[in-house]
């Protein structure tokens, strides 16, 4: 019996070592945004199918986590649903990393409410007030007389930072619930009649039990929905954003090959299938300038 235990242990150990060797050679490590994780997972699955022998590992954790990992050299590609802050870029440079940005998809960041809530049109200003905690009852916005429950993301989320910097220009209400990912926000708002939350458009296209809020840039402006791809691409939908990947300037041929796949027509078709939007010409040019793809 004892003998067998030993044999099993040694074999397992050997197998582990072999496996980690394989990983070390070809594996591309991608880490970061929870908004991007499903999309990048899908892209890498199809890429691996077409290119046997290449391995990609995709993990989440939030844009902040991905960017930190890129700085600490523990991933090859950092998914980020926001841009790197100037402070982060200078930190990266001081650590010997030269971060380059690639835009792989467009997102209409969607504000969602429960399907029983008939407040489905809001201005950016109103959304800011709601999430800053200055507006606390739906009746103030023409809805039922119920207190608003806020669902947001945790501070390591790029969506958390993007939404705050663009719409709130201040801090989130301390009563806002900090959810663990886009899907958790969707599930919570589905259940909660008084809830409001924000998620990447890829998480609401197929979702039921929700109303996606149409947003106007200011009072008097036209309302636009993030589900309308034309409005997102043209910028008529005011909270559209590019979804980025950051790589170190000295990226490998393997990484470059994957990036090329992502921005190729096939890659962009997968982007649309996953509920996000293909990148407009503006960002195609940007990518050429940034990393030459």
């Amino acid at each position: 019996m004892k003998k067998y235990t030993k044999i099993v242990a040694i074999t397992t150990l050997a197998l582990c070592l072999c496996a980690s060797n394989v990983q070390a050679r070809n594996m591309i490590q991608i880490k970061g945004s929870d908004t991007l994780i499903n999309l990048v997972q899908k892209l890498s699955e199809i890429y691996m199918e077409k290119n046997p022998g290449k391995y990609i590992a995709v993990t989440g954790g939030g844009s902040g986590t991905g960017i930190a990992a890129l700085m600490n050299n523990t991933c090859d590609i950092a998914d980020a649903s926001r841009n790197m802050k100037p402070k982060e870029i200078s930190r990266a440079v001081s650590l010997g990393i030269d971060p380059k940005r690639v835009v792989i998809a467009m997102d209409g960041l969607s504000v969602i409410v429960n399907e029983n809530n008939y407040v489905t049109k809001l201005t950016m200003d109103e959304i800011g007030k709601i999430f800053r905690g200055e507006c606390t009852n739906w009746s103030e916005l023409g809805g039922d007389n119920t207190p608003i429950t806020l669902y947001g993301r945790q501070s390591n989320s790029g969506t958390f930072v993007f939404f705050r910097d663009l719409l709130l220009k201040g801090d989130y209400s301390s009563r806002m619930k900090r959810m663990n990912g886009n899907s958790q926000v969707v599930e919570a708002v589905k259940y909660d009649k008084s809830g409001i939350g924000y998620v990447g458009v890829g998480y609401v296209k197929e979702a039921t039990g929700l109303n996606v809020v149409s947003v106007a840039a200011h009072a008097g402006a036209e309302y636009a929905s993030p589900l309308n791809s034309q409005d997102v691409k043209s910028g008529k939908y005011p909270i559209a954003r590019p979804l980025n990947q950051y790589v170190n300037g000295t990226f490998s041929a393997d990484v470059k090959d994957f990036l090329l796949f992502e921005v190729s027509p096939e890659g962009q078709r997968i982007v649309e299938e996953e509920g996000f939007f293909a990148i407009p010409k503006e960002y195609v040019d940007f990518n050429k300038k940034s990393v030459g793809i």
Binding site: G61, G62, G64, T65, I67, A68, M71, N72, K87, E88, R91, Q154, S155, N156, R175, K177, R178
Partner: peptide, 19 residues
């Protein structure tokens, strides 16, 4: 009420904090 404990704060923030 919703609560946020010490452990969850560390778990949320340690991943993204600049060293």
């Amino acid at each position: 009420d919703s609560v946020r404990t010490m452990t969850s704060t560390i778990a949320i923030e340690l991943g993204e904090v600049p060293y």
